[in-house]
Measured scan of single mutants.
Amino acid sequence: NKFNKELQWATWEIFNLPNLNEEQVKAFIDSLRDDPSQSANLLAEAKKLNDAQA
């Protein structure tokens, strides 16, 4: 299933962003679980936040 692979990839990527704190990671993962179809958008937002906090 396409969404499942995207969800797994986005989850792994978010867990490995070095500049997000635990609460931010949890919030993004919760959002992914709530709406897996938004995984690409949520990953992009997480990466933006990660870069901003570098």
Rank of each mutant, 00 (worst) to 15 (best):
E13W: 15
T11S: 07
Q8M: 13
K2W: 15
N16F: 04
A54T: 12
N4Y: 13
Q53E: 05
A44I: 13
L32V: 05
N50Y: 01
N41A: 12
A44F: 10
F3G: 12
W12R: 07
N4M: 08
F15I: 09
E45I: 14
L7N: 03
N4E: 15
A40R: 14
L20S: 00
I14E: 02
N21T: 13
D51K: 12
W9S: 06
K48T: 08
D30S: 14
P18M: 09
N19Y: 11
R33N: 15
S39D: 02
E6P: 04
A54I: 10
L17N: 01
L32Y: 02
F28N: 00
N41I: 12
E22N: 11
P18Q: 10
T11W: 06
E6V: 09
A46R: 00
N21K: 11
E45F: 12
Q8H: 05
A27M: 14
F28E: 00
I14T: 02
E23N: 12
R33E: 13
V25P: 00
F15S: 11
W12N: 04
N16K: 11
L20I: 04
A54P: 06
K48E: 06
S39N: 05
K26R: 10
A52K: 11
K26L: 10
P18N: 06
Q8T: 06
R33H: 15
K48L: 10
E23A: 11
N16D: 03
S37E: 07
F28I: 05
A40S: 10
E23P: 05
R33M: 15
A10G: 03
D30F: 13
K48Y: 08
D51N: 10
D34Y: 11
K5D: 15
A44Q: 10
R33Y: 15
W12D: 05
L20P: 00
S31T: 09
A46F: 03
N16T: 09
L49S: 03
D34E: 13
A46W: 02
I29G: 02
Q53P: 04
D30Q: 14
A44W: 12
Q8K: 05
N41F: 14
A27P: 01
I29T: 04
S31I: 12
E13I: 15
L32P: 00
A10N: 03
W9F: 08
N41T: 13
T11R: 06
D35P: 01
S39G: 05
D30I: 14
N21S: 12
N16W: 05
L49P: 00
D51P: 01
V25S: 04
L32W: 02
N4S: 07
K26Y: 10
T11E: 10
R33W: 15
L7V: 12
N50G: 02
P18H: 11
N1T: 04
W12F: 09
F15V: 06
E6H: 07
A27L: 09
L49Y: 04
R33P: 01
A10S: 03
Q53T: 05
E23F: 13
L20Y: 00
N50S: 12
N4V: 07
E6G: 03
E13G: 03
L49R: 04
Q38N: 11
Q24W: 02
K5I: 05
L49W: 04
L49G: 00
L42R: 06
P18K: 12
W12V: 05
N41R: 14
L42E: 01
T11M: 15
L17P: 00
P36T: 04
A52T: 09
Q24A: 02
D34H: 10
I14G: 01
I29W: 05
K26P: 00
A27V: 11
P36H: 03
K5S: 10
N50D: 04
N16Q: 14
E22T: 10
D34R: 15
